[in-house]
Design a protein around this nucleic acid. Structure first.
Lengths: 156, 156
DNA sequence: ACTTGACGATAAGGTGCATTACATTCACTG
DNA sequence: CAGTGAATGTAATGCACCTTATCGTCAAGT
């Protein structure tokens, strides 16, 4: 048997745990402003580029067009976004942030920065760089292995 | 502003991406044997220790007792597990693997090992150790920050 | 025994996601 | 310009998970 098998397995669990805890920590704070994982993710992406189509957003977020459509339904009902028709293509909806959600953005970014400061507190710059490097390499490997993400089957 | 903020943010995305891709890769293979994320996780834990109570399992898997109960319902219907009454405490159900799911275990472990070999292929032992260390530290920090996992609010 | 509080599980209602199937609309090709 | 195929979004259905509320059971104190 090869060495390091234990380390590999531990890393699998470690990644899952850490990601889970990170998401929990942020979600708890977002929930206090009435946002869920699915909804803050949409708002965060729209803050980078407003007025994207649903298909583009779904691809960005790596969820199915259907799932995104439902999330947009809820966000529209709660007044966080609005759908506007695309002037040149009647199949498309363009999704725009409303003032309500624009007011939330600063608090979202602050929260994110605060949390990051807290849990990377005792990491050296070198360690951070190394961690980032390892993750990037691992991601590249995984992407190379061509894992299909939802909705990509239809896209020939 | 402090340095390294970019690295921190990248690490956040990196962790999320990598975990997502890892889960996808394994799930795709498990789905071929009729298991979903939720169900293979239950089976994997029971393979370590059979006959756990639902509450203990829920805590292990960090999901709510309700969510676990539903998953057990489905696993029982598909014949993968069975509930047996606890002889000493009539509130409890003990969950046991059936022969059907015992037959699946070897394939599950093989798949896991194959995948790990594939994506850690170009990592040195030293890098693996370092990655494991960073993740462990990060997890410790996060746990320290006392993030409540589902269902823990009720348990005073 | 009797109450009180904790524990194990279920019921009900809602969010988030996937897959399959479908209607529109567009864009390309003959 | 018709005709086909691809792209965009929706409808319907099912799985997975959460929160809140409730019921039955146990354990411990009085």
């Amino acid at each position: 048997m090869r060495e390091g098998a234990d380390a590999r397995i531990e890393i699998g669990y470690g990644l899952a745990d850490v990601t889970h805890l990170l998401r929990m920590a942020f979600d708890q704070r977002m929930r206090k402003m009435g946002l869920t994982t699915a909804t803050w993710r949409v708002i965060a992406w729209l803050s980078r580029q407003d007025g994207q189509t649903q298909a583009a957003l779904a691809q960005r977020l790596e969820i199915s067009r259907v799932a995104l459509g439902e999330t947009i339904d809820r966000l529209e009902k709660s007044g966080h976004v609005e759908r506007r028709a695309d002037p040149t293509d009647r199949r498309k909806w363009r999704v725009h942030l409303t003032l309500l959600s624009r007011d939330l953005l600063p608090r979202m970014f602050e929260t994110s920065a605060e949390l990051q400061d807290a849990y990377f507190q005792d990491f050296s710059e070198a360690e951070l760089k190394q961690l980032q490097l390892s993750l990037t390499r691992l991601r590249a490997r995984l992407v190379e292995m061509k894992i299909e993400t939802p909705d990509e089957e239809s896209g020939k």
